[in-house]
């Protein structure tokens, strides 16, 4: 698994549950004392071991933990770069949803070896969408769910999200956009560092 993802899990555990939690998880899972490097690649089994240990230590289900990870990545100030990159997808949450299918390609432009699930967006009635996630790694749909929840909030939209259909090769995410302009959302300037 790519170091960016492993590093994200590490930061999430440290920032959410404290350094002691991470130290414990790292020891149980057999991560090197220095932790993960974002630009190196690690065995998938190591990531699995980390998630397994984290789930046992934190007391959440794997699904909930992954969803929290997704929300954390978009909303935590340390990862502003990721939020900004996602906001380039569009001016509104709806435009952003329409840009989701390009997300794997956009990601590959920046980090060619980062594995992403393929995403396919379909309209489902009025203001409803189905997002098909295919491939990627198991549980990626929950991270995506958390990220989308946080992005809706970022744009000021009110949306309901649910992982409905989990299959061996992927999952379906349903999005109900209740109010595209529920609140003003967070500001976004095309130039980094501007309010």
């Amino acid at each position: 698994m790519h170091g960016l993802l492993n590093r994200a899990i590490q930061c999430f555990l440290v920032d959410t549950y404290g350094g002691k939690c991470w130290t414990h998880v790292a020891r149980v899972a057999g991560v090197e004392p220095g932790g993960f490097e974002a630009m190196l690649t690690y065995e998938d089994s190591l990531t699995d071991a980390v998630l397994h240990a984290a789930v046992a230590h934190v007391g959440l289900t794997r699904e909930m933990l992954l969803e929290d990870l997704g929300t954390y990545l978009v909303s935590h100030s340390d990862h502003e770069a990721l939020r900004r990159l996602l906001r380039f997808g569009g001016e509104t949450f709806l435009e952003f949803l329409f840009s989701l299918e390009d997300l794997p390609d956009r990601t590959r432009l920046a980090v060619p070896d980062l594995e992403m699930p393929e995403l396919e967006l379909a309209e489902d009635g009025e203001k409803g969408f189905l997002i098909q996630c295919r491939g990627g790694w198991p549980g990626a749909e929950f991270v995506l769910q958390g990220m989308l929840r946080a992005m809706a909030d970022d744009y000021g939209a009110l949306a309901l999200l649910d992982v409905t259909d989990r299959r061996r090769d992927g999952a379906t995410l349903t999005v109900s956009l209740l109010d595209a302009t529920f609140h003003s959302g967070r500001s976004f300037s095309l130039v980094a560092g501007c309010p």
Partner: peptide, 12 residues
């Protein structure tokens, strides 16, 4: 896309 790439690449 150009702005996105500039930021993504500088982050990497």
């Amino acid at each position: 896309e150009l702005l996105y790439l500039t930021e993504a690449k500088s982050a990497v």
